[in-house]
């Protein structure tokens, strides 16, 4: 018998093992839901799978009586737009500041402590300030995401730049590179895949801030909808929305990983399983 740490599942058991927790979760839900519905057929807390499926079909195909649009798509569009803007701007700021802080000691001495202090501000605590300054519209929600994730991306990227082997920076200088060229041809191309990693790590936080902002003040959006129907205990809407958000988060992460692999094959060469 091999040691536990050396036992690796084959392809079939890998898939089976991966599915197992999902199946268990579904079973537990099914049993609990059945038990509650047997006691009270009008129970709203754990709707049956049929109710959930019906509700999902309704959400994705029947236009709302008020706006004439299909709510789930409308909410998804609004949320993804905010998320993309927030994360995109954060990534851009993160890349520029992270590289500047990591590569240029004069900037680092001047600003690294400042960024470290800024990153300690709890973003939710400044949300009222954002609402006051930017109003209740789109801007404050996007800015909350930016406030929430940019400090992490900046500091992570600064670290990645400083982790580049010193030898490479010296080598570039022996090839005659000036500071700008070193940033452009040596540092930037090497940290862009690391930026994608940082963005993937901060997506969960970005969703958190997005849904919080939508819950507090919005007229559409996935978070808005969940918190709206909460008043009616509409679990048949909330649960499909939660699953849908999870799927969106998973797909975004998967997409970023694929982009990174396509665009930066050299970065992924040493990865296991390839």
């Amino acid at each position: 018998m091999k040691r536990l740490i050396n036992q690796r599942p084959g392809p079939v058991s890998t898939a089976a093992l991966a599915l197992l927790p999902f199946v268990v979760l579904a079973l537990v839900y099914l049993l609990a839901s059945d038990a509650r519905l047997a006691e009270n057929p009008n129970d709203k807390l754990l709707p049956s799978f049929t109710t959930l499926a019906e509700s999902f079909v309704r959400l994705t195909s029947v236009p709302s009586q008020r706006t004439g649009e299909i709510l789930l798509w409308q909410d998804t569009g609004a949320s993804l737009r905010r998320l993309a803007q927030g994360v995109g701007i954060s990534a851009a700021i993160g890349l520029i500041l992270g590289v500047a802080l990591g590569a240029i000691p004069l900037i680092r001495s001047g600003f690294a402590p400042f960024v470290a202090v800024l990153s300690l501000i709890p973003p939710m605590a400044v949300l009222p300030v954002l609402f006051i300054v930017f109003g209740l519209g789109e801007v404050s929600k996007v800015v909350l995401i930016i406030v929430g994730i940019t400090p992490f991306i900046v500091r992570d990227l600064q670290q990645r730049v400083q982790e580049l082997p010193r030898e490479l920076i010296i080598k570039a200088q022996t090839l005659g590179a000036n500071s700008w060229q070193i940033v452009l041809r040596v540092i930037l191309p090497q940290v862009v895949p690391r930026l994608i990693d940082a963005v993937r790590l901060s997506l969960g936080t970005a969703w958190l801030f997005l849904i919080s902002a939508e819950a507090i003040a919005a007229t559409e959006g996935l978070g808005y909808r969940i918190f709206l129907v909460r008043r009616y205990l509409a679990m048949d809407v909330i649960l499909p929305y939660v699953v849908w958000i999870t799927i969106l988060a998973y797909l975004t992460d998967f997409l970023l990983k694929q982009i990174s692999r396509r665009a930066f094959p050299w970065y992924h060469n040493g990865e296991p399983g390839r």
Binding site: E167, F264, W266
Partner: peptide
């Protein structure tokens, strides 16, 4: 150098 002399990207 002994290592890290070439650019991986």
């Amino acid at each position: 150098f002994q290592r890290y002399s070439v650019f991986p990207h």
